[in-house]
């Protein structure tokens, strides 16, 4: 009896250990994912009745200018901050990886701090600093004589995107710096030593050795930033409410507004599915492009 139980618990242990994941995965991810395909084909205001409408929701999404604007917004916000952020993150990581910089722990910690501060709290302090006439940023720029008229940081389509991008930059620079630093530290030291023995300059070492070896992690950073930009929610939700004129509405914010504000749950589901496939395509393209470069 005991030995039978003994063999059973030994054989079934790994399955029992992984079962919580699969139960939760089934209920809270796989089933909802499949179910969202059904929801995308109904008209539903959140009440009892769902009316099947076939592909109508998708036809509407494809013709919906606001949907494509959200994709455009994601791209523009990405272009504003990603290259600059990764450049600065790489530069700082290289500095913090060199042996002569003092106080590395302090710099690393301070630069990483914005990433773990509550998004809502950071968004509100940004909204106060960027606010109207006497927000801190406008006041400082005026005192420095750089501008005469206040910049409408949150109320003009162009600057609102810059403001959202600036906040994303602020929150994620340190995180990317840490990832890149991890990449740098995994490069064996003797590669550098032999390069310097062969007479390479520090700049050549950076271009020829460090950056190529960092490529994997930089690609990872770019993919994370892409998904992050289109998936932005809290930043525009608090800072700009997606405005002005939807210039900072992201796909996720649109899904939220269409469902929980406008009660078009079916239509919002169709947007969510379009969004999902677009994200898959973006990730796939980025992985392909970087592979072909090799």
């Amino acid at each position: 009896m005991a030995s039978k139980w003994w063999r059973w618990q030994q054989k079934s242990a790994p399955y029992l250990f992984i079962s919580p994941f699969f139960v939760l995965f089934g209920i809270f991810l796989f089933y909802p994912f499949l179910y969202s395909f059904y929801l995308s084909m109904v008209q539903w205001n959140g009440g009892k009745t769902k009316t099947f409408v076939g592909m109508d929701n998708f036809k509407r999404v494809i013709q919906d200018d606001v949907f494509w604007l959200t994709i455009e917004n994601g791209l523009i916000i990405m272009i504003i901050y990603v290259p600059l952020m990764l450049l600065l993150a790489t530069l700082v990581a290289v500095l913090l990886n060199s042996n002569w910089v003092k106080g590395k722990g302090f710099f690393r910690m301070s630069l990483f701090t914005p990433n773990i501060m509550a998004v809502v709290a950071v968004a509100f302090v940004f909204s106060i600093m960027l606010n109207g006439d006497n927000g801190l940023i406008n006041v400082i720029l005026k005192q420095l004589g750089l501008i005469d008229v206040s910049i409408l940081w949150l109320d003009s389509p162009v600057w609102a995107r810059v403001s959202v991008a600036a906040m994303v930059f602020y929150r994620w620079m340190g995180y990317n710096m840490i990832l890149i630093l991890a990449g740098l530290q995994s490069i064996p030291k003797d590669i550098y030593e032999s390069a310097y023995v062969d007479g390479a300059t520090p700049f050549q070492v950076l271009i020829r050795i460090t950056l190529p070896l960092l490529k994997k992690i930089l690609v990872f950073c770019v993919i994370l930033s892409t998904l992050g930009s289109f998936g932005l929610f809290t930043e525009p939700f608090v800072l700009t409410k997606g405005g002005p004129l939807n210039s900072t509405t992201t796909p996720v914010l649109l899904i939220y507004q269409e469902s929980f504000t406008n009660l078009n749950f079916g239509y919002a589901s169709a947007i969510a599915i379009m969004f999902f496939f677009l994200m898959m395509i973006f990730t796939f393209i980025q992985m392909r492009v970087t592979r072909d470069n090799d």
Binding site: F28, Y31, F275
Partner: peptide
């Protein structure tokens, strides 16, 4: 690979 944002609506009903 499935961003949780894409399943908020079915999740809400569940």
């Amino acid at each position: 690979m499935v961003p949780s944002e894409t399943t908020i609506i079915p999740m809400f009903e569940i």
